[in-house]
Amino acid sequence: MMELTLAIAIGCLTGSGVWLLLRPRTYQVVIGLSLLSYAVNLFIFSMGRLRVGAAPVLEGAGTVNPADYADPIPQALVLTAIVIGFATTALFLVVLLAARGLTSSDHVDGREP
């Protein structure tokens, strides 16, 4: 059930993201890219397999069974991807504003078709 919910959520986010990415207005493109990056972040997270109530960090000394713990690497990857995605989206927004100011149009080609 958990897998199905997450898969549907990723699918919805990706679908809306791709649709918005193909739209002609720059703002729609930004929102589309953001939705896509959310979907990708969830996807990376799910690649560590979905676990409930398992800690990602090994506790105690001695031999431990890795199967009792969640995989920490996808979580670390997600953090990096979130930070990078946030920065690049902010940068894209600045360019969007510059394009809006220079061309006085919010069409992605800088002029109305």
């Binding site: 990415l21 996807f43 690049t88 894209f92 220079l102 061309t103």
Partner: peptide, 19 residues
């Protein structure tokens, strides 16, 4: 700026595929 907008959008999408 116009060419840069396209360049950035395409490369952001490609980065998501990379991930």
């Amino acid at each position: 700026v116009r060419a840069g907008l396209h360049y950035i959008a395409i490369n952001l999408a490609a980065s998501l595929l990379f991930l």
